[in-house]
Amino acid sequence: MFHLKEVKYKDILNIENLIIPEYKVTCIVGESGSGKTTLLKLLNKIISYDSGEIYYKNKPLSQIDSIAHRRNVVMLPQSPAIFNGSIKDNLLIGLKFAEKPIVSDNKLTEILEFINLNKKLNENAQKLSGGEKQRLALGRILLLNPEVFLLDEPSSALDDETEEIIIKKLVEYTKSNNKTLIMVTHSKKVAKDFGDNIIEVKKGKIIN
């Protein structure tokens, strides 16, 4: 799905050759500051590489419209934005930005159940805890139904039990819906238990 060839970005990443397969769960692991988040941002076209080439479905990223790409390849940052308003407002705002049809309250309630967020749609999103906000943002991108999920430490604010539940659900969803999940994780256990493909980044280089 993604193929990186001789990709360099500043003095942060230097990737000679890397293939990230389609319809799989890829976990990106490594020390803090090794370049993991930068790699996700390159795949999402938030930043542009200095040299080399990244291919998405055999087409150079440089030839793909950035906005169209980000609708197919959605990134969830480690500290996602939570907007003023209700939980419902926050779930729907992604669809509005992407100019996609608004879904019913029943669908939104299903999403809340999926992400283990036992709250009502009209509750104030700003009053949620850090872990609840992280799950709310995850629900927002699930509604977008992209081809690829790029998740940066999606469970960093969750306790171990909730992390296990959420990641397991995400992996099952990915596989049953022919999606691709690429996830930076601090947890070696998550990578070992759920990753079909594990990429280790060390000082900007891929360690196989």
Rank of each mutant, 00 (worst) to 15 (best):
L43S: 04
T185C: 00
I165T: 13
E164I: 07
F83I: 11
A81E: 15
E153L: 13
K5N: 08
E164S: 13
E16D: 12
E164V: 15
P154S: 05
G94I: 08
S86C: 06
N122Q: 05
I167A: 05
E6K: 12
Q63L: 15
N178F: 11
E99F: 01
F149G: 04
V25R: 00
F149V: 03
E161P: 01
T37W: 06
I46T: 14
S66D: 12
K133A: 02
T185D: 11
G131V: 05
H186G: 13
K36D: 02
V29Y: 00
A125L: 08
I165V: 07
L144M: 15
S66E: 09
D105M: 07
I28V: 13
I67V: 14
I111S: 00
L76M: 13
F114L: 12
L143V: 06
S32D: 10
K59Q: 12
I46M: 14
I82L: 08
E22L: 02
L138T: 10
K168P: 04
L13S: 01
K59P: 09
I20K: 02
E6Q: 13
G139Q: 08
K203D: 11
G139L: 12
I198C: 02
I166T: 04
N72E: 10
Y56T: 08
N177F: 07
I207M: 11
L95V: 11
S79V: 13
V29N: 01
N122K: 08
D50N: 14
N90F: 02
S187C: 13
G139F: 06
V171G: 05
V74C: 13
L18K: 05
K205F: 06
D159T: 09
V171F: 06
Y56W: 14
V7M: 07
N44M: 02
I198L: 03
K24N: 04
L42D: 03
K192N: 15
K96I: 06
I167W: 09
I64D: 03
E161I: 14
L143T: 00
I198A: 01
D89L: 06
Y173Q: 06
T174G: 00
I115R: 07
V171W: 05
S62E: 15
V7T: 15
K127H: 15
L150C: 00
Y173H: 10
G131T: 03
S129N: 03
T162V: 15
L142Y: 04
K24D: 01
K96P: 04
F194K: 04
D50M: 09
K202Y: 05
E163D: 13
K36L: 02
I198T: 03
K192Y: 11
K24P: 06
L18D: 05
K133T: 06
I20M: 00
K168V: 12
L170A: 00
L43V: 06
I165C: 02
F97N: 13
D89F: 01
T37L: 05
E31D: 13
L128T: 05
L138H: 10
T109G: 06
K96Y: 03
D105G: 00
K119W: 03
L42I: 14
K41R: 00
E161D: 14
E123W: 00
K8L: 11
N197T: 12
A137E: 09
P154I: 03
